[in-house]
Design a protein around this nucleic acid. Sequence first.
DNA 1: CATATACCGTGTCTCACGGACACAGTTATT
DNA 2: AATAACTGTGTCCGTGAGACACGGTATATG
Lengths: 239, 239
Amino acid sequence: MAAKQTGHAALAALLWEPQAGPRRGPRPTLTLEAIARAGVAAADADGLGAVTMQRVAEAVGVTKMALYRYVPGKDELVALMLDVGIGPAPHPASGHWRADLEAWSRALAARFQRHPWAMAATIGTRVMGPNELDWLERAVAALDGTGLTGAEAIDAAAVLAGNARAMTEQAAAAGGAGPEDALAAVLAGLLRGREDRFPAIGAAFAETVRDGGRDEAFEFGLQRLLDGIEALIAKRRKG
Amino acid sequence: MAAKQTGHAALAALLWEPQAGPRRGPRPTLTLEAIARAGVAAADADGLGAVTMQRVAEAVGVTKMALYRYVPGKDELVALMLDVGIGPAPHPASGHWRADLEAWSRALAARFQRHPWAMAATIGTRVMGPNELDWLERAVAALDGTGLTGAEAIDAAAVLAGNARAMTEQAAAAGGAGPEDALAAVLAGLLRGREDRFPAIGAAFAETVRDGGRDEAFEFGLQRLLDGIEALIAKRRKG
DNA sequence: CATATACCGTGTCTCACGGACACAGTTATT
DNA sequence: AATAACTGTGTCCGTGAGACACGGTATATG
């Protein structure tokens, strides 16, 4: 299942074809969206590992094998879930590229935070769905007229998206009053007694804890990236 | 297996405890490192999905169940593989923070490129291993004396690492003359006939293809981030 | 030196999950 | 009315993770 080479085209058709015309047999009782939504609900509740064909099938009220009439396999189901879960991009268009990209990035981070499993699902070679491509379109459009090349605009969008994904993931692990606090405690305990081996981290950690450590890694990366993009735009405009 | 809440402490002990003292029974025939290396080899060859207890056991010459004498479960094995595969960080220390971080980031990206499965393995709540913490230490140390706070230094390291991870992944998917080219073809085919819906991407893509599209997303993100960090350092120094 | 105690590797079993396949029922086409 | 295509279902199999009890082995204790 993990290595299903055949099917990029099939997956693309699944994600992009709206619906085939009138067919002969009995009319389907389900829709792709209903199936995907059931999967999203299961993943939101209990993680991506809890998304099983059986469970999704029960959620929509059919047998496990009935799902295979709609979806070639589980990988494709997850791809569908991703596009449905991430949803369409907001269309702010304030007019200024920086404000637009900032809002775009925060909105994307919020989506990832709402669907933590999406980070695990966006790994590896993938076919982009309509919504995902919509997000990319908005970011590239925001950079229109700034003097960046097309490749640079796409790179910028990819980097900003990567930041939102990676840093939100880290935030999800650090924040929340769940058993994740135990993780931070484990790390702190690990550091204790090893300050000689990791002096810089030890000092930084001590300082952070003193200041009331929260994780602003996403915001930090966002601002640094925007500053860097701004510098590039300025350089391009000068010549 | 995916949801094993118990064991952060056990995993930490596994990753960090060097070796217990002399024990009573027969001496173990294997070492943790040998097991981890076998796993790394399997993952490098056929992907993370091909890493099965059975296969790793065969590679080291024991039965599947013998591995459980060394490792609590597969998740822990993968965590071990990650730390072994990523290896220790280089210690360049050129003296200038920017050069150091640049080399650091490129080295990390190279490691990820060498072990593509590591990107999938670094997802979710994790306990850092010695090598992983070593990488963090080097990055934070490079920012010593720049005027950044400890929290900012840690954030910077996390963001740079996130960029290396996410962008290298994308590069691995786009490059190479494998069936991934088919993916790009699918995307291009998708875009064709939808330029009205995704005008910005269409224009950017056309321009990129004309210029001979390569993926420099990692380098782009790296330079933008370093520029942004440099701007922050300059601001801090001014007051 | 003898014995108990802990530990090592193995074989067998169970369970969960993804997926193949054949079958019966349903509906649009001819 | 007959046919062809499509839908949902039940049954089956392969694979992989992990539980558990067993026999063998090396160290600590008397």
